[in-house]
Write a protein that binds this DNA or RNA. Structure first.
Lengths: 239, 239
DNA sequence: ACACCAGTGTGGTCTGACCATACTAGGCGG
DNA sequence: CCGCCTAGTATGGTCAGACCACACTGGTGT
């Protein structure tokens, strides 16, 4: 098992385009924000059909490397972006669906990444604006009239924002993708408002505690609270 | 920024297939090893063209969820597999190429995941067969006649195997994908055999120390050695 | 000067065809 | 009866060409 040399998959036509774009990215010929040549141009340039070019672009799309738009003008066409979390999360979500990535493992990985991020954040210069934004998110979550959808949305933003404070783009992307990948799971785990009210209250309290710890630059406390926070919610929803 | 509801992308045709397959995966109708219906069948079933069906399958392919093979018989067609690391790593690699995921961040994330895995591994029942396999990998790496390509390959297997001992599939997949995503970088960082020889010797020694620590169930020591190991190699190659 | 509208280029989709492959079943010769 | 060999068949991979919806562009008419 774990053979390194995989199948001898025949050379795919679209790989030429992918390799070309990857090379141009590495060399700096292409940068975020640039527009890719049109599909018809690329097909001619690589000597393959437009359908195969579209395969490559579709792949870059799900990876979160480009966005496409129809029409004409500067905002149309295929444009390079950078949204690693989108690509990672869709991949993770489907693998979770296939039952080969247990939700428990995802939660454990989240704890690992988030607690590290919280601790690491306290060892860097204070990022006042981000902390202010985090506080504002919590304030909006305190509104008892907020429906669960909106709460989950703000909740997600709060956690992602916290993990961003550590300044590691890879960890942030993974964090966000882990969260997105189990968002459906979380959404459907609490089904009635009767179940929800007390849970929401507890989450609010925990969030404030975490943010306070981070603001006070107590990395150890922040990490512990975060761990308890995630573990607690998971046990609430997993039975 | 970080708006949750992203682009107002029009409904894509292939999404119907993706959603359908994801639902069947969740419900258990589909399982790893199963064959998907033929592309022509799916196109008729969803009322879309075969081209759009192929889009969906191509996406599943790059995600590491299916493999495709031409021909007829039980080994042909589109078959469900589970190779999360493949999909994650290709996404990561391209984002690294786009210069929006610094290599340093990847290395830092690897340290985080691997040290955790090593420590966690010592808190679980001993996995003798895996340890034996790890030892065998090291033995093969001790061969001074081994070329660098083969060494990197075994090296990679060793690290992935170690991270597997923690028993967390998500962490393992991320680990492997991080490693794959910077494999080119590592390969090209040491270019001459003169540079390589002493580096290889040091890596061998470090590997043995790490495995010894894990075997002795000293999680703290293993984590520390692993951190030093990765950081040391990175500093060797980054100047 | 302004409003309008045809033109143009973009990705999105569809249709239908052909190819290479790999297994399957049947025929043919032993 | 056995065994080899060939035609058949179903698969994904690729291509070509067409049409659509969309959004900006630039000229045209008032």
């Amino acid at each position: 098992m774990t053979g390194t040399t995989d199948r001898a998959a025949g050379p795919r036509a679209y790989e030429a385009v992918l390799a070309s774009i990857e090379a141009e990215l590495r060399s700096g010929e292409l940068n975020i924000g640039d527009r890719l040549p049109g599909e018809r141009t690329l097909s001619e340039k690589h000597g393959i059909s437009r359908a195969s070019v579209r395969d490559a672009i579709r792949i870059l799309d799900v990876m979160g490397l480009v966005r496409t738009a129809t029409g004409s003008g500067p905002n149309s066409g295929t444009i390079l972006i950078s949204d690693p979390a989108a690509g990672l999360s869709s991949t993770l979500r489907l693998h979770v669906a296939s039952r080969h990535l247990p939700v428990a493992d995802i939660v454990q990985a989240r704890i690992l990444l988030e607690t590290w991020a919280a601790a690491a954040a306290t060892e860097r210069p204070l990022d006042e604006p981000s902390l202010a934004r985090a506080a504002e998110l919590l304030a909006r979550m305190d509104d008892p009239a907020l429906d669960r959808e909106a709460f989950h949305d703000l909740d997600s933003q709060f956690h992602v924002l916290l993990s961003t404070l550590a300044g590691n783009a890879v960890v942030s992307a993974m964090m966000e993708s882990l969260r997105l990948s189990i968002m459906d799971y979380v959404r459907h785990s609490v089904t009635t408002d009767e179940q929800w009210q007390p849970v929401g209250q507890a989450l609010r309290t925990q969030h404030h505690g975490i943010l306070d710890a981070v603001t006070a630059r107590d990395g150890e406390l922040a990490a512990r609270l975060l761990r308890d926070h995630i573990e607690w919610f998971f046990t609430q929803t997993s039975h």
